[in-house]
Design a protein around this nucleic acid. Sequence first.
DNA 1: TACATGATATGCAAAAATGCATGCATGACG
DNA 2: CGTCATGCATGCATTTTTGCATATCATGTA
Lengths: 288, 288
Amino acid sequence: MNWDDLRTVLALVRHRTLSGAGSALGLNYTTVARRISRAEDASGAVLFERLADGYRPTDAGLSAARHAEKMEEAELALSRDLAAGDETLSGPFIVTAPQLLIGPYLAAVLAAFKASHPAVELEIRATNDLLDLNRREADLALRISREPGDDLMGLRLATQETASFATPSLAAQIEADPKTPIPWIMHVSADAPPKKIDPRYPNNHILLRFDDMIPVLGATRAGLGVARLPMFLGRSEPGLVQIPLLAPQAYADIWLVGHRDIWRSAKSRKFREFLLPEFRARRSEFLG
Amino acid sequence: MNWDDLRTVLALVRHRTLSGAGSALGLNYTTVARRISRAEDASGAVLFERLADGYRPTDAGLSAARHAEKMEEAELALSRDLAAGDETLSGPFIVTAPQLLIGPYLAAVLAAFKASHPAVELEIRATNDLLDLNRREADLALRISREPGDDLMGLRLATQETASFATPSLAAQIEADPKTPIPWIMHVSADAPPKKIDPRYPNNHILLRFDDMIPVLGATRAGLGVARLPMFLGRSEPGLVQIPLLAPQAYADIWLVGHRDIWRSAKSRKFREFLLPEFRARRSEFLG
DNA sequence: TACATGATATGCAAAAATGCATGCATGACG
DNA sequence: CGTCATGCATGCATTTTTGCATATCATGTA
């Protein structure tokens, strides 16, 4: 039994169609079909039912995929192991962080790191998605959360607080008449205006909700309303000022996390040498 | 990273030379060399030192082999899983047994089984070596031992006793003069004549020792000496008779063993239906 | 019923992997 | 000190694998 054929079986079980599995593997779907037949010949079992809308795994196919998953885990563990043992400061190194953290904090660190170690092929994945550090979708991740997570290594870079922000003109207007209706720009994760609004401002309602902080920020800068933002974010936006609707309030911390194995690799250690002083020096920017 | 290249790394670590790994994999050694380079390129690590007398794995190479071993275990587990789920009475089925057990007991069972289920491609491995049932070197094994072993399924087919045997003429000679020197033919696993020899026969010494029971049997049949043999073996040899040097004595039992997964497969179940009655009916042949 | 969509098969040419033949290096042995 | 056995490297021909173009088939929709 060919091991790469087994991996192909796994991909087909996951993607359900030849073309899906093919593009996941970087192969033509024809190749996938042929590898599946080969795997079936070799194993002597029918692994898939051929249906009009795709390949459906049989019990044997599911069993094959389960075992192939184990093989994949071993392969990923190896890849981490090799990366961990790599003492050179060269080759690919992938960092992921929320988009909004990159500009004000990470960019300078990245530039300094790259200047000192030009042989490292630094790649940044700017996303709020939690990339799978087990699969080495990234080597290190900056995350905003309350816990480092599972069996990952973690280092708290900063404790954060939030406050309320708006454009100067909206801020002045509210200050002039605290009873004016106050429109809030929210993230969809909250379904009501913040609870601890200063009672001098009684007239709050939700204007808009977004599933991402970038448009929240955009709408707030456009003067549409008030937003509760992490201190660093409100402060780094030149068009916004803090307004006293909310007292500074604890928020999820900023963590650097990485897989146990990768954490001790040379590139990872060196990267932390650049990153930590930056956050240590600017720790107060995250607090009210 | 190509999975079959990883499997090649594992083979090379195990066999230490390109040609050894190649023949283990059924490949030309050139192919092995090229796959190794490919694996090194893909992983970005040097996996072997090229020495004059073979490839020596680096730390990274050893690590790769360890993980590839995990992958291999998963592959073997899959292969057993598929065999276990195979409800057809067709295709390959491998039985192993000690050579001497096959003629008098197993042959008839095999013939009957094959007659009822001609689509099963029955293969017999006649050897005293313990084949690896995890690796499916055999599906079922008859073994002479005190325990079924590890995490294998086992069924005791017979309890055995031993006695002393010789040719009729040697037997008569000893009977006539119990004080005559008695030459023993032994297996190398014992380094002295049996302890419980009847005191009427005081004059014992070792004549020859063999590492296999077949030459022990041969030498005994040639009239060279006396051997302690399992009852079934002494009795099934037409040229031998039991002599009263030793009272019947407990010996290792005969077990049918198989891997947990394979045990429940259709071919395995059906084979037991043929095997068990044969041993049950002839149980007394193993006792003195 | 005609048609668009999204899937699987299949024949053929290009690309990649493999095996073979040859040459070279090293160590054991007489 | 030559000979032999064993193992690695490399160029070339062959075989196998892959991708592409095209055909087919089922399904939902107007």
